[in-house]
């Protein structure tokens, strides 16, 4: 029963996706272009590849409002998103990873990442680097200490996984680097 419902929803999903605004499609292409650029780049820092985890959706209520906007306002919204996507695609943030406690320090320490990525993509990257895998088949809460990694900024707080790296960088970078400390247990409770 469970797997059946899951399949059903999965089958439904592509239809839903079609309704989404076209912005996302262009973004995906941009990302691919970006990856090609990276290969040509001979910089010292390794770039963390973009994940397309952050998908956008807009509510029917909002899309109706958008649909009925006066043309001037409509143009403003369109240009705004375009400019924002452009500037953020170009920008790269430097991330320095620092281990705390008994976790291995990853090498190299500094990486580049697109500023429009969410913080969760850093956590995913770090887990891969440290070869930490989640038991996703079964959300067994007892084993979570082994499969988790806790990331902190400024040695104080764990940012929300959906925070945008560009924003964190603007607010908390030191010497043009965002320092992310990581630990396998809860630190700075």
């Amino acid at each position: 029963m469970f797997s059946l419902t899951r399949q059903l929803t999965q089958n439904n999903e592509p239809d839903k996706d079609k309704d989404k605004d076209k912005k996302e499609d262009t973004r995906k292409i941009d990302n691919e272009d970006d990856k090609q650029n990276k290969n040509n780049n001979n910089s010292n820092e390794i770039t963390i590849q973009d994940t397309n985890l952050a998908r956008s959706k807009i509510s029917t209520t909002n899309s109706l409002i958008l649909h009925n906007l006066p043309s001037k306002q409509n143009n403003l919204v369109v240009n705004l998103s375009k400019n924002y996507d452009k500037t953020n695609q170009v920008q790269k943030c430097l991330i320095r990873f620092q281990s705390i406690g008994s976790v291995n320090q990853i090498q190299p320490k500094v990486y580049k990442i697109s500023s429009n990525q969410q913080f969760s993509s850093l956590i995913v990257f770090l887990k891969k680097k440290l070869k930490i895998y989640n038991n996703n088949q079964d959300n067994n809460n007892d084993s979570s200490t082994d499969s988790q990694i806790f990331c902190y900024i400024k040695n104080t707080f764990a940012p929300s996984p959906d925070e945008i790296i560009g924003n964190l960088f603007k607010n908390f970078a030191t010497n043009n680097e965002l320092i992310v400390c990581y630990c396998n247990t809860v630190a700075f409770g």
């Binding site: 912005k23 998908r55 959706k57 919204v77 705004l80 998103s81 953020n88 924003n167 603007k170 607010n171």
Partner: peptide
């Protein structure tokens, strides 16, 4: 927050 655009459209600066 700018609700009419992609979910990444959140501005936060000092």
């Amino acid at each position: 927050y700018l609700p009419y655009s992609s979910s990444n459209f959140i501005l936060q600066e000092l």
